[in-house]
Design a protein around this nucleic acid. Structure first.
Lengths: 359, 359
DNA sequence: CGATGTCATGACATCGGTGTCATGGTTAGC
DNA sequence: GCTAACCATGACACCGATGTCATGACATCG
């Protein structure tokens, strides 16, 4: 492989001049420049980033770790796989800034993390990103002060900068949209209790009700999923059953995610209820293979993994740039747009909503 | 950051001896070794792979490109995203061999590929992997002879080593399973004509019929999907309609993939047909969020992306190891297991199948 | 016209490891 | 007891870039 010396010799200049042409850090005469560029082309010269890294102490690399890290309950999402969107988002932004992404997956074994970090540090990554499979709390082994790290889709106790989905705001937006469509009795089939997203979304649900002067009825919120997938469906069936038997039956159901919504479709269908005429349904995630293809297509809210990736990279780049931690909260929340399809029916409101004379 | 010289000084030995402890390339006295290891720990020394790469000319890096590359029709799979499984599979195997994965996504723009390759070459990657979104033919810009490259989920005209799914064998297996369950009139709602997988699977379908002495009826094979997603559903509806109106109506339907199967479920349901009692259905891909959660759960065949990733890495490692291209065909096919769930009904065969006296 | 500044370029050291070769001390073999 | 073989270690050059400083050729200015 040709070196900068070969190029220099071929162009009849010094290596340093070739370097100047490549990096543009000092003026070079046009003729000289042309000669150098020609030599580069002829020799098919490709600079060595290893040599450059050594001299300049900047590798241009960013490390990313995906896969399990917490020792919490294994809540596998065999098809969720938000990771790829986060990876793509982060990679694309980093590429714009000339950074290359090193990636490594734990393969589900948290004990491998220190090794991965060691490898990344050997490559002198300028920053690290850790991506969790779902919104959760993690605890990472400590890394030297020098290498900034940003958490994506998770956060920790140590105040590490993090980017997470705005589960509370998302659910609030979703419920607000239902209220705007005239719904007031809104059931909520939640994710498993062990998930942080579950609590945040219930908060968002409550807050939307409150802002609209609707009383919160605990009977309407049912923990519908189990961390154990084996009994998932039966549990969901039972939950729907309980909600439908309520005296003042809800006109709309929020589901923990689109997958659950798909199963709720089936349950409602088997019970002879038509969506959205008899009851409206919304999901969460905008998992398009489901939301676009079920019938009626599902109204939901986008869980913006791509944006989380971009935002994470953005935060990391800023830290790499030496920006001291700003006063800003270390946990950044990202919200996604409503995606309103055909699973919600507009209703006439029985009473004038409080919202109408609020704004 | 501590260097090997700092460690040497702290341990009272020469840098070269530290190097020997790290690499184990020559015997080192136990006492000396302990002193060196202690110094390494005390100083929190992490070797620089840039320096190592420079001297040894081996970077330990493998580059991977994902995203669009062909200029063919944009057949987007918004939710398919096999890439992540391929990435994971490849990364895990590479990690076992001490290789680190550099990853870059084209962001859908094939014209960026040369830049990505340039970047990878600057990092002196020891090998390259290109991952396509779906089984297709691609054409990559030429790279120097030195860096081996393997294609995953695609192939080219130039005879580059490649790993692709065994679409023909998979469909044959699937149809054979239907035949084993007593079906003989088997409809096939295929993927869009533009896809290579479509033709291969039709081949597999025919071959299974032939092996069982069942006459191929072209009316049973309907190109059910369009590359244009806008009219996708109407087209599918029409295709199912056409097949159901056939004089000798099929007892089972093969669908191009699980997503299509999910829509076929809905169509059959609306027509008052029950699965699997009135008609059996199988998919393709084992896209679990669908296949496990529709009702009845879908019998299908796994499209083994993880295995493709592993096999690709395996092939690449062999090439990196200097193994001259063996006589083996450069295109390697990978097949996945049947996943038999509840969407197929066993039938009594009207006539003794030819298979029974064949083996 | 000499002093000063700017432009274009080169010489040389250096980043942090490892390959090569040399060296001194032990042990084995005859 | 002398040589050969081996073990453990160090000196030194080198991988391929770039930062620093120096230098010669011109242009500018008072």
């Amino acid at each position: 492989m040709a070196t900068i010396y070969d190029v220099a010799k071929a162009a009849g200049v010094s290596p340093k001049t070739v370097s100047r042409v490549l990096n543009g850090d000092a003026p070079v005469n046009q003729k000289t420049r042309d000669a150098v560029l020609k030599a580069i082309g002829d020799l098919n010269y490709i600079p060595s980033s290893a040599a450059r890294t050594m001299r300049s102490q900047r590798s241009g690399l960013v490390g990313m770790i995906t896969g399990a890290i917490s020792t919490g309950p294994e809540w596998s999402s065999p098809a969720g796989l938000p990771e790829i969107f986060i990876v793509q988002g982060a990679q694309r932004l980093l590429a714009e800034y000339g950074k290359t992404l090193l990636i490594s997956d734990t393969g589900g074994r948290a004990d491998r993390v220190p090794n991965l970090i060691q490898t990344f540090l050997e490559h002198r990554v300028e920053g690290l990103i850790y991506v969790a499979e779902y919104h959760q709390k993690v605890s990472l082994p400590v890394i030297g002060r020098n290498t900034p790290i940003v958490l994506a889709n998770c956060f920790d106790d140590a105040g590490t900068p993090a980017v997470v989905p705005d589960d509370m705001g998302g659910q609030r937006t979703l419920v607000q949209a239902l209220i705007d469509d005239g719904h007031e009795r809104i059931g909520f089939l939640t994710l498993p209790d062990s998930l942080i997203a579950r609590d945040l979304r219930v908060e968002g649900y409550k807050s939307a009700l409150e802002e609209n002067g609707i009383r919160f009825d605990p009977d309407l919120v049912v923990s519908a999923a189990l961390a154990d997938p084996a009994h998932e469906f039966d549990r969901l069936w039972d939950s729907v059953d309980r909600i439908l038997r309520l005296k003042d039956r809800p006109t709309a159901l929020c589901c923990g995610n689109d997958k659950m919504a798909m199963q709720v479709y089936r349950i409602l269908h088997e019970r002879g209820l038509s969506i959205p005429d008899d009851i409206s349904v919304v999901g969460y995630d905008d998992y398009r293979i489901i939301s676009e293809h079920v019938y009626p297509s599902l109204s939901t809210i986008d869980l913006p993994y791509g944006t989380i990736g971009i935002r994470t990279a953005e935060t990391l780049l800023r830290l790499m740039d030496g920006a001291a931690r700003t006063g800003k909260a270390p946990v950044d929340t990202v919200s996604g747009p409503l995606v309103w399809r055909n699973s919600v029916k507009k209703r006439d409101r029985k009473v004038t909503s409080i919202t109408q004379w609020r704004s």
